[in-house]
Amino acid sequence: MASQGTKRSYEQMETDGERQNATEIRASVGKMIGGIGRFYIQMCTELKLSDYEGRLIQNSLTIERMVLSAFDERRNKYLEEHPSAGKDPKKTGGPIYRRVNGKWMRELILYDKEEIRRIWRQANNGDDATAGLTHMMIWHSNLNDATYQRTRALVRTGMDPRMCSLMQGSTLPRRSGAAGAAVKGVGTMVMELVRMIKRGINDRNFWRGENGRKTRIAYERMCNILKGKFQTAAQKAMMDQVRESRNPGNAEFEDLTFLARSALILRGSVAHKSCLPACVYGPAVASGYDFEREGYSLVGIDPFRLLQNSQVYSLIRPNENPAHKSQLVWMACHSAAFEDLRVLSFIKGTKVLPRGKLSTRGVQIASNENMETMESSTLELRSRYWAIRTRSGGNTNQQRASAGQISIQPTFSVQRNLPFDRTTIMAAFNGNTEGRTSDMRTEIIRMMESARPEDVSFQGRGVFELSDEKAASPIVPSFDMSNEGSYFFGDNAEEYDN
């Protein structure tokens, strides 16, 4: 783990906690998980779902989305002020799938948001429990990260689609708070800032007046979040320049895209947490497990152990491969979309394939898809080993990566060399080191050039047997250095459309 220093740990961010010791953190995270579980059980009762239907990941996603929508204050306010045809701002819903006479049927349900809020609060001892809501947002974000390569979004903001390893959390809503900021990748933060800068260039009043003052505060806050992700002084200094700019424009845009590229080699610290679907927490609570009393951590053995003992089902389209669908969801559960496939294969105990080789589309089923041909199958979400999630980018030494994705962002704290394609990355730096950030740029390029592919990161860190909950005997895996390590390699994943 990167030293926490003055930073709060993510469990504290996750639970809005002030400084807590490890036991208190485990208890408050457990409380959050228990609340999600209780809410899910109650919703299944309301909807009269069978046990099997309640364990269907598509039903879980609909129920999670309903509660997130019920608590989305800004959108609710907007919907009330701008009524649109056929949208009731006070209601929320989605597809629920039921097994009827041996076939899967889709039923569109509609609930009062007020009623959903009441059920959620009741499951969370009367609190709004925003930490639990954020947790579900991060699960949705991790699922998107594993399912889609955001080529269009990258290109629109002047970045290269091969930089997708920097895009963790790119679909997280803005209201996801400190826990959300911690899991956002460098590219995601750059993209958010670039969008602001572009608006400022096109709209003279963007930075002016009372609204402009708020915009400015948001801009500086985002700059500080991004600065905190960088691990070298030169990158941090460049972020200070971007933040202090009187009138952010093209120079800042250039600096930010430069920094994003540099992060492929001088990786930023991005938190990883295993956020599971509500249909995993519900049955665990129903079986009598007391998360608050037992304590829970999002970055240790607990999620692995929970998945070892969970039964989750998914709808499967006619030509999809259930094992591939399982891999997709497994990666999402562990926030591992940008991790090295060699490491993932070792931990999972079966070969993890790149996205383009998977015969599976996303987990969600569109409303126009034919239910007649839908089957369902068990998702295999178990693992051979477990490993500690990392909050750091690993040290800054790398190795060759593949054509589709030119770097990785480690999820697990496991000893290995970190793949990246130096030639491709360095070719993108057209040696432009003039301007006010020239000395920093020169320094950053120097550090990137001296990074050695064969150097090892996370020295001495290994994986653990599932029986080793105290992480007492690390097993340090050895990897084939020459092997392909990137998930979005030469990829044809669908595009994420909101």
Rank of each mutant, 00 (worst) to 15 (best):
L264Y: 04
D51F: 00
I445T: 10
W104K: 02
I63Q: 03
E252G: 09
A428G: 11
R156L: 06
T215H: 05
N492E: 09
F206H: 05
S287C: 11
P410W: 02
L298W: 09
G404K: 00
I63R: 01
G158Q: 08
D497P: 02
I197S: 04
G187H: 02
I217M: 14
D127Y: 15
I57Q: 03
K325V: 03
S170I: 09
D255I: 03
I119D: 04
S269L: 11
S467A: 08
F429W: 03
A451G: 11
I444N: 10
P83N: 09
P354S: 11
F489Q: 03
E469R: 04
S141N: 14
V29N: 05
G94W: 07
D290N: 13
Q308K: 15
D290S: 08
Q12A: 07
T424E: 02
T130G: 05
M440N: 02
K103Y: 03
L133T: 06
S314D: 05
T424S: 13
W120K: 06
P161D: 04
G158F: 09
M105N: 02
K227F: 09
S69W: 04
G362Q: 07
M189W: 04
A251T: 07
G177C: 07
A237H: 13
A401Y: 00
D203N: 12
D128A: 03
M1S: 13
R98Y: 03
N432I: 13
A323Y: 09
Q4H: 09
T157D: 01
A366P: 10
D145G: 10
G404W: 02
A323E: 09
V155R: 00
R19M: 07
A323T: 06
P453D: 14
L79C: 10
F39N: 01
G187C: 06
V242H: 02
G94M: 08
S478E: 01
L298Q: 13
Y496W: 11
L466V: 10
M448A: 10
L172C: 04
E495Y: 08
A131I: 02
I444T: 13
P89D: 07
G462M: 03
R175T: 11
P419M: 09
R106G: 11
A178N: 11
E53C: 03
L353K: 14
L315Y: 00
S478Q: 07
G169N: 13
V285D: 07
M43P: 02
L264W: 06
I388T: 12
Y78A: 13
N483A: 03
R243C: 13
G356S: 13
Q399T: 15
A451W: 03
A403Q: 11
M136C: 14
I217S: 09
W120D: 04
P95L: 09
G185L: 04
Y40F: 11
A471K: 07
N144M: 13
G209T: 02
I201H: 15
A428P: 07
V329T: 15
L379W: 01
Y97I: 10
P173F: 04
Q235A: 10
R216F: 06
P95C: 05
R400K: 15
D160G: 10
W330F: 15
A218Q: 05
N370K: 08
K91G: 02
M196Y: 06
H82W: 04
I365Q: 08
G30A: 10
N247V: 15
E339C: 06
L306R: 12
N492M: 05
T130A: 11
N101Q: 14
N101K: 11
T424M: 04
R19L: 09
G356V: 07
S165P: 15
N124M: 13
Y487P: 04
M159W: 04
P283N: 08
V280W: 01
I41L: 15
R382A: 06
L143Y: 07
E454G: 09
S359C: 11
E18M: 03
P477F: 02
T433L: 14
A337S: 13
Q398N: 05
R152F: 04
V100S: 15
R19G: 09
C333R: 04
S274L: 00
T151Y: 01
D203V: 06
S413H: 02
Q149I: 10
N224K: 13
L154D: 02
